[in-house]
Design a protein around this nucleic acid. Structure first.
Lengths: 180, 180
DNA sequence: GAATGCATGTAAATCGTTACATGATTAG
DNA sequence: CTAATCATGTAACGATTTACATGCATTC
């Protein structure tokens, strides 16, 4: 089982869905911490079904293949909980923004400031979007330990991460401009 | 050219090195934002040489292949500067820790707290390490806009990122324990 | 009747990681 | 003389991404 299988399993366990719906749910707001296109999702669903962690219910639907609704089994839910408490292995870091900043000494300062300002705007937009999600989840007021409460925690982290990047870009741009 | 090629070019541009030395420099403290094993570096050096962005100087050395020192050319330095100010494309996010947290509702709370405490320790260690690097770079006092100053900026970001993750893990664990 | 959204799958190409492979130099 | 370090490369495997491929249902 790959990590992406547990990403899919986690979504199915929260709510039964079709592959298409899972792809849509992954686009937002899950995408900021785990993004997957549909071409990864369908083989994953196959593996989860073979393992007995999800069940399939074929329904009449659009397209040449019909429509299939997936749902967790008790074994799947247990496997998800056991996987979630295993220490995560974090893969090799690949942060292009930070890498670019480390090379900015070779660039024209004005061009560097333009790039950093654009990045700051991008991250501000991202921050605002996630702050919205946080607001809605806080209003929902799900109890501590529930699925909704954990969603709130992930959104909080996303918001703070985006804010951190925004501020970092701004600070470097200000430093380069000379008005510290 | 791949992003990794610019990672290699950036290091070579700061200081001429052998492939082996580049691999060592990437292990630390570059690794927290861009990690690469030696097996990616050698083909990369080949591409950079073919493009005329670095030069090779063969020297007598250990091993069946001798020793090769790489250095930037003016064209390579310019290409680095131009690449650095292009807006970065950030790839699909894959954050296993956040993904696990989003699935923690399916786990036993005590096991979840143990995992989160271990992660908090890991990030605290990482934070302390990078705080050290920040301290050393601050003492060096490189001028604004220099390579050293940009190194300081990347280290600052790494430190704050690690601190953010540590605090996040702690907060969730505290929330689950009930003593808010 | 045309466009958009729903829906599922496969194939090929690219990318990254791990394992394999070799051997000189230096310090203990 | 033995172990660690320096040093460079390739091959195989596994994962990921992009492109290909199809076609129903609904709305405008």
């Amino acid at each position: 089982m790959r990590t992406l299988d547990f990403a899919v399993l986690g979504l199915v366990a929260r709510e039964p869905s079709t592959g298409y719906q899972l792809a849509a749910r992954m686009k937002w707001p899950v995408a900021y911490y785990w993004a997957e296109g549909h071409s990864g999702i369908y083989p994953s669903l196959r593996r989860l079904t073979d393992a007995g962690w999800v069940t399939v219910t074929a329904e009449a639907g659009p397209g040449p293949h019909g429509k299939k609704v997936y749902a967790v089994t008790p074994a799947g839910r247990q496997a998800l909980g056991e996987w979630a408490v295993q220490p995560p292995v974090d893969p090799a870091a690949r942060d292009e923004l930070v890498l670019k900043v480390s090379a900015l000494w070779a660039a024209r300062p004005t061009a560097a400031i333009v790039m950093l300002a654009a990045e700051a705007r991008r991250w501000e937009a991202n921050r605002a979007e996630l702050a919205d999600v946080v607001g809605r989840l806080e209003e929902a007021g799900d109890p501590v330990g529930s699925a909704g409460w954990f969603s709130l925690q992930t959104a909080l982290r996303g918001r703070d991460y985006a804010r951190g990047r925004r501020d970092w870009c701004r600070r470097i741009a200000r430093g380069l401009s000379g008005d510290e």
